[in-house]
């Protein structure tokens, strides 16, 4: 098993949660989302974000509106729908549970 592979899989699963979480705080367009994820070292290649955004939108968790930008074509600003907010709440509690469980397993690995 390659460590890089496992890491990539983990990151991909978490990205969805992070994108929803980011957008629930403030609507943003793709490049801002990319920048935020890059700052948090969650992104290896930027292209990953686009299929993910489209899927979240198609699943009704996100929606978007067009906004004019200065000196460029209009930008697509994404925001979380009501369905997305509920979904995010679910994800958040799942994540908290997961972190607690993993913490337990990894710190007590010796005491089976």
């Amino acid at each position: 098993m390659k460590l890089e592979n496992t890491k990539a899989q983990m990151r991909k699963g978490i990205l969805e949660y992070c994108i929803l979480s980011l957008l629930s705080q403030k609507e943003a367009y793709a490049s801002e989302i990319i920048q935020a994820l890059k700052n948090a070292k969650l992104l290896v290649v930027e292209g990953t974000v686009y299929p993910l955004l489209t899927r979240l939108k198609n699943d009704g968790l996100l929606t978007y509106r067009w906004e004019e930008s200065t000196g460029g074509p209009p930008r697509k600003y994404y925001l979380v729908t009501a369905l997305g907010q509920d979904f995010l709440k679910e994800l958040h509690s799942t994540w908290t549970e997961l972190v607690a469980s993993i913490d337990k397993i990894t710190t007590n690995a010796g005491n089976l």
Partner: peptide, 14 residues
């Protein structure tokens, strides 16, 4: 390099 090859972008959770 920054955007990645299509295979790397794939949304595997789909």
């Amino acid at each position: 390099t920054q955007l990645g090859e299509p295979a790397e972008m794939s949304d595997d959770g789909n």
